[in-house]
Nucleic acid binder design. Structure first.
Lengths: 145, 145
DNA sequence: TCTTAGTGGAAAGAAGTGGAAGAAAGTGGT
DNA sequence: ACCACTTTCTTCCACTTCTTTCCACTAAGA
C-alpha cells in the first residue's frame, strides 16, 4: 500500500526520482516495471505492472461501452511501459511531461495500489477548485472519519 | 501484447518507422508481414498477419449479415498486405495515408493484438472532445483506478 | 564518521533517417 | 511482337542523433 506525499524532482532528462519510501515498497512487492499513464493528461499515474495487468483483466471482462473505449483511448495515448533504473529513476513519457507540466519539483502521492505524480502548484489549485465536501464523505459510508 | 503510445514519424515516401519497442515484440512473436487496414478511414490499423488470419477465420464461421458485408467492404477497401523492411519501416497504403492524414508526426498505440496509427493532432482533438469523466470511471466498476 | 539518498553527466550502444543503387514495371516505337 | 527507354518502386547501406546505462560525486541524516 502506497501512502502519503513524498515530494521529489524530475531532472532535465525527464527522469523522476522515486522517493526511497516508495522504492522500498516497490522492490518488496513488485518488480521494476511500471505502466505510466494518465486519465486526463494533467497528472501522471504510475502503476506497478502487476497492478495494471489486474486492471486490464478486469476491463477485458467488462462489457463494451463508451466509457471503456474512452478509457482505453486515453490511457493508451499517454501510456508507456517504463523500467526503473538502478538508481531508482523512471523516465517519464515525453507527452505526459509536456501536458502535465512535470519538471523540477513535483508531488508523488501514494494512492494505495498506484502512485500519482503532479505538478505541486497545479495540484493545490485543483484541491481548491473541487474540495472534499461533507456529502462526499457521507457517500463513502466509512465509519470513523 | 502491445501497450501504450510510441510516437514516431511517417517520411515523405510514406514509410512508417515502427517504434523499437513494438518492433521487438513483432520480431519475437510474429513475422514481418502485416495486414494494414482501417475500419473508418480515420486511422490505420496494423495487424500482424497471424492475428488478421485469426480474425478472418472467425469471420468465415460467422453467418452472413449486413455487418459482415460492411466489415469486409471497408477493411478490404483500405487493406493491403505489407512487409516490414530491414530497418523496421512499413510502407503505408496511399489511400489510407490520404484519408487518415498520416504524414509527419503520428501516434502508434498498442491495442493488445494490433497497432493503431493516428495523426497526433487529430487524436488529441478527439480526446479533448470526449474526455473521460469521473462518471465514466465509476461506470467501469473496476477497483484500484 | 559512516551510511543511505539524491544528482549529474560521460560513454557506449541503439534507434532513426536520408538517400543512392539496383530491380521491376510500364510505355512507346519500329 | 520484340526491343529499348523511361520511370517508379524497393532494398539496402551509411550516417547522425538520441537514448540508455553506469559510474562517481554531493548532500543529508544517523
Amino acid at each position: 500500500m502506497f501512502r502519503g506525499n513524498h515530494p521529489t524532482r524530475v531532472d532535465e532528462k525527464g527522469r523522476l526520482k522515486v522517493p526511497a519510501e516508495f522504492k522500498r515498497r516497490v522492490d518488496e512487492l513488485y518488480g521494476p516495471q511500471f505502466f505510466i499513464t494518465s486519465k486526463d493528461g494533467k497528472r501522471a499515474e504510475l502503476y506497478p505492472m502487476k497492478e495494471w495487468e489486474r486492471i486490464e483483466d478486469a476491463l477485458a471482462k467488462a462489457p463494451s461501452s463508451g466509457a471503456k473505449k474512452k478509457f482505453l483511448d486515453v490511457t493508451n495515448y499517454y501510456g508507456q511501459v517504463v523500467e526503473m533504473d538502478a538508481q531508482g529513476r523512471l523516465l517519464l513519457p515525453q507527452l505526459l511531461r509536456e501536458d502535465a507540466t512535470l519538471a523540477g519539483d513535483v508531488a508523488v502521492l501514494g494512492m494505495q495500489t498506484y502512485l500519482v505524480v503532479a505538478n505541486d502548484a497545479q495540484h493545490r489549485a485543483q484541491l481548491a477548485e473541487s474540495p472534499l465536501t461533507d456529502a462526499d464523505i457521507d457517500a463513502l459510508g466509512v465509519v470513523g472519519i
